[in-house]
Simulated assay, not measured.
Amino acid sequence: MTLKPFLLAALASLGLSQAASAHFQLIFTPDTLIERPGDVPLKLIFWHPFENGHVMDMAEPLEFYAVHRGEKIDLMDTLAPMTFTGATNAGAAFNGSVPVKRSGDYVLVVVPAPYYEASEDIFIQQIAKSYLNRNAIPTDWMAPQGLTTEIVPLNKPTNVIAGSTFTGRVLAEGAPVPGIEVEVEYIAAQPDMETDTATAPTTAPSPGGTLVAVTDENGQFTFGIPKAGFWGFAALGSGPETDFEGKDLSQDAVIWIRAWDME
């Protein structure tokens, strides 16, 4: 499944691949490998974390939940509005938490309300996933979550080794999506969990613009992970919905992984 031809043309004419590049929906917590049971704090931010760029205002998400051992845990009541401040501006975002008790994977999912990008006169909806794990026991990370569109990891997303590769499979309504551009992002500026501000970037974006991979006929892409830290992948326009409130909609699938240096 691919974007409808008229939407592809519209996005191209608007220069979406440049203007909207590096818009990334974050589900962020600095700790992804959880040692002790308890509530793990996290933040939902719509931002440009590679260059500590513009912060977009988030409306209240349509859904926010975790999946653990196949069980869905609603997290909407943990959300509290906050203002997140980056290098250039501040925007509406949310603090939240997830109860991590038993061993295994916790797949975090946010379905945000579509965001109106006024400069391009389009809506963007980035359906995002990230992952926590307790006690190194795999339970859920490899399973699709039945989302409208999503990226299913083919490597364990909580402990990718820097210098290796990450492969994901882009799905829309459960079917692979070939020929989709997947933008790659690095969290060079991390959200400070106490102050709701961005730290200084630890590295700069690479020359030549946004890093991009393209899915093959099976909807798969592979990217070499050059550095430890948090890496995000956004499959642009991978979802089946292409309009919202009478305007073009880019419905994107986002996944976040954690890479580590070998000791």
Rank of each mutant, 00 (worst) to 15 (best):
Met1Thr: 15
Thr2Pro: 04
Pro5Asn: 03
Phe6Met: 02
Phe6Tyr: 11
Leu7Arg: 15
Leu8Trp: 08
Ala9Thr: 14
Ala12Ser: 11
Ala12His: 08
Leu16Glu: 09
Ser17Val: 15
Ser17Ile: 14
Ala20Phe: 05
Ser21Phe: 10
Ile27Gln: 02
Leu33Ala: 09
Leu33Glu: 12
Ile34Pro: 15
Arg36Gln: 12
Arg36Asn: 12
Pro37Glu: 07
Pro41Met: 07
Leu42Gly: 08
Lys43Gly: 12
Pro49Ser: 12
Phe50Met: 02
Val55His: 10
Ala59Arg: 07
Pro61Trp: 02
Leu62Arg: 12
Leu62Pro: 08
Ala66Gly: 08
His68Gly: 07
Lys72Ile: 05
Lys72Gln: 12
Lys72Pro: 00
Asp74Glu: 10
Leu75Trp: 00
Ala80Pro: 07
Pro81Gln: 06
Met82Cys: 08
Thr85Asn: 06
Asn89His: 15
Gly91Thr: 15
Gly96Gln: 06
Pro99Ile: 00
Leu108Gln: 01
Val109Ile: 15
Val110Glu: 03
Val110Ser: 11
Val111Phe: 09
Pro114Ile: 07
Glu117Pro: 13
Ala118His: 14
Ser119Met: 14
Asp121Phe: 08
Gln125Val: 02
Gln125Gly: 12
Gln126Asn: 14
Ala128Asn: 04
Ala128Gln: 03
Lys129His: 10
Ser130Asp: 03
Leu132Thr: 00
Asn135Pro: 10
Ala136Cys: 10
Ile137Leu: 15
Pro138Cys: 09
Thr139Val: 05
Asp140Gln: 06
Trp141Pro: 03
Ala143Leu: 14
Ala143Glu: 10
Pro144His: 05
Gln145Glu: 14
Thr148Cys: 11
Thr149Leu: 11
Glu150His: 06
Ile151Thr: 01
Val152Arg: 13
Leu154Phe: 04
Leu154Gln: 15
Lys156Cys: 03
Thr158Ile: 04
Val160Ala: 05
Ile161His: 11
Val170Trp: 08
Val170Asn: 04
Leu171His: 03
Leu171Ser: 08
Pro178Leu: 02
Pro178Trp: 01
Gly179Tyr: 11
Ile180His: 09
Ile180Pro: 13
Val184Pro: 02
Tyr186Asn: 00
Tyr186Val: 07
Ile187Lys: 05
Gln190Glu: 11
Asp192Gln: 01
Glu194Tyr: 13
Thr197Ile: 00
Ala198Arg: 01
Ala198Asn: 01
Thr199Arg: 11
Thr199Gln: 10
Pro201Ala: 10
Thr202Phe: 03
Ser206Glu: 12
Gly209Gln: 13
Gly209Tyr: 14
Leu211Tyr: 09
Leu211Arg: 15
Val212Thr: 10
Ala213Gly: 10
Ala213Leu: 06
Thr215Tyr: 00
Thr215Trp: 02
Asp216Phe: 10
Glu217Val: 00
Gln220Met: 13
Phe221Ser: 05
Thr222Glu: 12
Phe223Leu: 03
Phe223Gln: 09
Gly224Asp: 13
Ile225Pro: 01
Pro226Asp: 03
Lys227Ser: 09
Lys227His: 04
Trp231Phe: 00
Trp231Gln: 02
Leu236Asp: 09
Gly237Trp: 05
Gly239Arg: 04
Gly239Asn: 08
Pro240Cys: 04
Gly246Leu: 02
Gly246Lys: 01
Lys247Thr: 04
Leu249Val: 06
Leu249Gly: 10
Ser250Phe: 09
Asp252Cys: 14
Trp256Leu: 00
Ile257Asp: 02
Ala259Trp: 04
Glu263Ala: 14
